[in-house]
């Protein structure tokens, strides 16, 4: 009996020793030499492996950054400026400042604004639906409402609003990784500057059809009338393919476009006060009147000059 116990102990101990030596030898023999900075950078990164940077995960990002020796083609949208500064410190290089971005859903075609004209049955996937037909509303360009973007978001920042049938972005969770913009077959979601204190202005429509057709399909759509572009004093609004677009780099958040838009397709987000349309319109009218007067004066002066 005692013999058995002793033998068991001895054999197991010897076995353990031998195997640990083998393991040690294997670990030494097959060790891969790697730049320790890769590990450091990977630890600094958020570790979401979302692919928002364009690499196949945080490790691949770190690997590419170390290989390149700079951060020219590496930017982690999830970590933002703070993380990038740390990464730059590890690499000993500079990083370009980049404003924080957020995903913006450019469709306001809620169930109410955009009545259904047929009923879709099939796999609940925007991709499948977009490949099949123009959609269950009169709008060919709007949100299909199957939630491919919601499924694509690794941060739980997107959710479907049951009432409007449109996705909503939770700004506090959105990291602007860009997964949703790639998942949307209609290219409705755009990454835009978050704006100062989260204040921003955007056109919530991408419909390229002509005005009357758009109006018929959706009451919240941009009809491409161009009023906003004419009103904008900062040259921030362009009109292409019957739809307006606000360049967030140029926009000064004056809300004049929002006030003149006949369909309410331009949305202001994060403003402390609700928009007083009449006041803004009056401001525009006054400015225009002044400008007209100035123009009249100028022509008068010119006339005088010519006469004289």
């Amino acid at each position: 009996m005692t013999n058995t116990i002793i033998w068991t102990v001895v054999i197991l101990t010897v076995l353990g020793l031998v195997l640990s030596l083998v393991l040690f030898w294997v670990a030494r023999k097959f060790r891969v030499e790697e730049d320790p900075r890769i590990d450091d950078i990977e630890k600094t990164l958020p570790g979401a492996n979302c692919g928002g940077c364009g690499f196949a995960g945080c490790r691949a990002f770190a690997d590419a950054a170390v290989k390149a020796g700079n951060l020219d083609s590496n930017y982690c949208p999830v970590g933002g400026a703070e993380v990038m500064k740390k990464v730059a410190a590890i690499l000993g290089c500079e990083v370009a400042e980049s404003a924080p971005m957020v995903a913006v859903v450019r469709c306001a075609g809620s169930c109410q604004a955009r009545p259904k004209i047929n009923e879709y049955q099939g796999e609940r996937s925007c991709k499948v639906k977009a490949g099949l037909y123009g959609g269950d509303t009169g709008c060919l360009f709007g949100c299909l409402g199957c939630g491919d973007c919601v499924a694509a978001c690794a941060f739980g920042a997107l959710s479907m609003n049951g009432e409007t049938g449109l996705p909503e972005v939770d700004e506090s969770k959105c990291t602007a990784c860009g997964k949703c913009t790639a998942a949307c077959p209609k290219h409705i979601i755009e990454l835009r500057n978050k704006g100062p204190r989260g204040i921003r202005e955007f056109v919530s429509c991408v419909n390229k059809d002509k005005g009357p057709a758009v109006r018929k399909a959706c009451s919240a759509a941009c009809i491409g009338c161009g009023l906003c572009a004419k009103t904008c004093t900062h040259d921030a609004i362009t009109l292409a393919d019957n739809v307006a677009y606000i360049d967030f780099a140029k926009c000064k958040l004056c809300r004049e476009c929002e006030a003149v838009c006949p369909t309410g397709a331009i949305h202001g987000v994060g403003f402390p006060k609700p928009l007083d349309k009449e006041a803004v319109k009056q401001r525009i009218a006054e400015r225009k009147a002044k400008a007209a007067e100035a123009a009249k004066l100028e022509t008068a002066v010119k006339k005088e000059d010519n006469n004289g």
Binding site: G122, E123, S125, K127, V128, G131
Partner: peptide, 12 residues
């Protein structure tokens, strides 16, 4: 199961 709905996408 909507098999073809998905396989069509896979094929593409």
């Amino acid at each position: 199961v909507p098999l073809l709905d998905n396989i069509r996408m896979a094929k593409a």
